[in-house]
Design a binder for these strands. Sequence first.
DNA 1: ATGGATCACTAGACAGTGTCAAGTTAAGAA
DNA 2: TTCTTAACTTGACACTGTCTAGTGATCCAT
Lengths: 203, 203
Amino acid sequence: MTMKPADDLRRSVLDASLALIAERGLAGLSMREAARRAGVSHQAPYHHFGDREGILAAIVGEGFVELAADCRAAIEGIDDPIARLEACGQAYIRFAMRRPAHFKLMFRSEHVSAPRHDEIMAKGESAFDLLIRTAHDAAVGGIGEADDALAITSWGLAHGIATLLIEGKLEKKCGDDPRAQLAAAMQALSTFSAMQRAARKKV
Amino acid sequence: MTMKPADDLRRSVLDASLALIAERGLAGLSMREAARRAGVSHQAPYHHFGDREGILAAIVGEGFVELAADCRAAIEGIDDPIARLEACGQAYIRFAMRRPAHFKLMFRSEHVSAPRHDEIMAKGESAFDLLIRTAHDAAVGGIGEADDALAITSWGLAHGIATLLIEGKLEKKCGDDPRAQLAAAMQALSTFSAMQRAARKKV
DNA sequence: ATGGATCACTAGACAGTGTCAAGTTAAGAA
DNA sequence: TTCTTAACTTGACACTGTCTAGTGATCCAT
């Protein structure tokens, strides 16, 4: 199943957009500049995406699929539920570091309105829900009874660490080296796991 | 010490900007519309803020001061270090809910570049560092030895929960009612505190 | 095969934006 | 009185997203 030329332009506009975002940030993405780089008229992208938001929605969709795949791969072969949860969090944070623009678009409400683009969001979010469910199951299996609260706590921790990391807010505490920051992030996750294990043994 | 007319316009442009953001979101803030609402020409705001970013920087500065004050007030009169940390996190999350636009501007790197506006950021961030130090001290006092890791973990949790909350990502798990979402957020914090206490007793 | 519809795209225009440059007006200092 | 500076206004420029109106090509039913 080869790509049709139509999808070809769609793909190259999308790639040009991602490159643009990588260079100039999220606000630096412009329909016209993306079209320019793809070598087409300023209106060509509209035929494939309808809207500026359409491009962002496409990026979000790809992001959710990739994140879910990352998480699935990370927990494969791990049995201990708390270790699974930690591995999942690690994948979450590594994804945020590898694709910061995707991550921001995925978890900010203002760029892509969920009601529109619901088919894309649904595809992505169903994959994402699996991720959350994994975390949830792991948490429940680990601690015994506390249901939603622990899942939200785990998600919140991973999400917060990831956010602080890609926004550069850990620089003051960990220095400029991204690897040192990543190490600190991972240490936060393992601290959380340790606390979880302690709480479990106590009960 | 009364306000000079100059500061008067500065203030009203700032208020118009905040109203604009509340109505149309962060991207809906426009220099020209803010000027229009303040009843001045489209260039008048530039005299006070220099830049579009200047307005955002002013908002960020006010936000850091208010957040620090909130946190300080929250931990007042509480002795138990773990309880202090939890109260601090509660204040952090309540602030995010009360001033979502401030919160986003404060913790995103793309809107306001720290190197420029360093005087504003310094004023705000020194207040903010106090907040982090409080969390740090409380954490260290609580668990005994683990130093930076627990502070980052706590900060990450509060930040992540706050972010998910104001981006509406908890709606699927907690429903549309903001009070139910806030309750879930608080429950996540208390879950964390319980785990911290359990870990402490175990060691 | 052929007429009509649909697809993929181009070209032009419009309102709106941030910001540079040049003027204006008023107040205060020398 | 003259000079300087602050606090504006006015006008222009390049750029943006998006609406409208085209233009070939391709496909499909007759």
